[in-house]
C-alpha cells in the first residue's frame, strides 16, 4: 500500500512566477515526513504538487519529476484525477461536505472510484475507516447526521477517515492541526503514528514541536527574499534537524533566531 516518492529537480510555477525551485528529495514509505519553514516558502505548494492539487489554480505548472513507484505523476499520459485517487489529502481547515451525512462523507471518495458496492461492504468500510481515524466511538450512533455538526477536531478526523477510506498510497496533510485545540491536535498526532504503518505520510506544519514529535524525516524550506522561489534547504532525519542541523539557516529557524 505505502509507496516511496522520488522528487527530482522539481520547479513549480504559478504563471511566470517560480514559487519553488530545484527540489530533490526521496520520501520513505511507511514513515512520516514533516515539512517546515516560514510562511510563503513554498512548502504547501510543494505538498500540493505531490498530488497535482496545485493545478487547481489556473496557470500552475511544474518542471521536473515526481515519481511514485516507478510512475512519473507528470507523465503526458497521466490524468491528475487518477493521481489524486491514489494520493489522499487532508487540508488545513476541516472540510467535510456539509450537505452530506457522516456516513456519506466517509464513502464519498469510494463512490467516485467504484460506483457499485454492496451496502454491507460499504457499512464495513465506514466502520473500519472511522475506527482507523479514531472517530468510530464518537459518531457510531449518528452516522446519518451532517458532518458539519461535529467539533473541529472530530471534523478533521472525519476528513482523515474520508481520505483513508479509498486506501491511498500516500497521505498528504497540509497543516492538519493548525485550526485545532491542543487536545484534538494530540488525537491527530497519535493517529498519524498509527497510520504510518499503512501509509506514506507527508505533513506540512508550522509547529516545530509537532514535527519533532511525529516525523522520522524533516525537510526545511526557505526563501532568500520576497519574490524569490522557495528552496528545500535541508532534508535530514528529524533528530538530526532538531539537534545538529547541517545548515546554519535551519538552526536559526528552529531556534527562533530567524530573520
Amino acid at each position: 500500500m505505502a509507496k516511496r516518492i522520488d522528487v527530482s529537480d522539481l520547479d513549480i510555477f504559478y504563471g511566470n512566477f517560480k514559487a519553488v525551485e530545484g527540489v530533490n528529495v526521496s520520501i520513505e514509505p511507511r514513515s512520516v515526513t514533516a515539512l517546515i519553514g516560514p510562511s510563503g516558502c513554498g512548502k504547501s505548494t510543494f505538498l500540493r504538487s505531490l498530488n497535482r492539487m496545485h493545478e487547481v489554480i489556473p496557470g500552475a505548472r511544474v518542471e521536473g519529476k515526481v515519481v511514485i513507484d516507478g510512475q512519473d505523476l507528470y507523465g503526458s499520459d497521466v490524468d491528475p484525477v487518477d493521481v489524486r485517487r491514489q494520493i489522499g489529502m487532508v487540508f488545513q481547515r476541516p472540510n467535510p461536505f456539509p450537505t452530506m451525512s457522516i456516513y456519506d462523507n466517509v464513502v464519498a471518495g469510494v463512490r467516485l472510484n467504484a460506483r457499485k458496492m454492496k451496502k454491507s461492504d460499504l457499512d464495513d468500510l465506514v466502520e473500519s475507516s472511522l475506527k482507523g481515524a479514531n472517530l468510530w466511538n464518537e459518531v457510531k450512533d449518528r452516522l446519518d447526521r451532517p458532518g458539519s455538526g461535529l467539533s473541529g477536531g472530530q471534523q478533521q478526523r472525519l476528513c482523515i477517515a474520508r481520505a483513508i477510506a479509498v486506501q491511498p498510497e500516500v497521505l498528504l496533510m497540509d497543516e492538519p492541526c493548525s485550526a485545532l485545540d491542543p487536545i484534538s491536535t494530540l488525537a491527530i498526532e497519535d493517529l498519524m503514528t498509527e497510520l504510518k504503518d499503512r501509509f506514506t505520510i507527508v505533513i506540512v506544519t508550522h509547529n516545530m514541536q509537532q514535527a519533532a514529535r511525529v516525523s522520522e524525516q524533516t525537510g526545511f524550506f526557505n526563501l532568500n527574499g520576497v519574490g524569490q522561489p522557495g528552496r528545500l534547504i535541508e532534508f535530514n532525519p528529524t533528530e538530526k534537524i532538531f539537534s545538529n542541523p547541517d545548515q546554519k539557516a535551519t538552526e536559526d529557524y528552529i531556534s527562533g533566531r530567524f530573520g
Binding site: 487547481v56 485517487r85 489522499g88 489529502m89 472540510n95 461536505f97 456539509p98 467516485l112 481520505a163
Partner: peptide, 26 residues
C-alpha cells in the same frame, strides 16, 4: 466554498463530479 471544492478534487473527482459533490448541493 473553495474548501469543499478542493475536498472533492483531492478525492479524485473530475470537474463534473466535483460540481455534483460540492457545488450543486450547496
Amino acid at each position: 466554498p473553495a474548501l469543499h471544492r478542493e475536498a472533492a478534487l483531492a478525492l479524485g473527482a473530475t470537474r463534473w463530479e466535483m460540481i455534483k459533490m460540492a457545488v450543486l448541493p450547496y
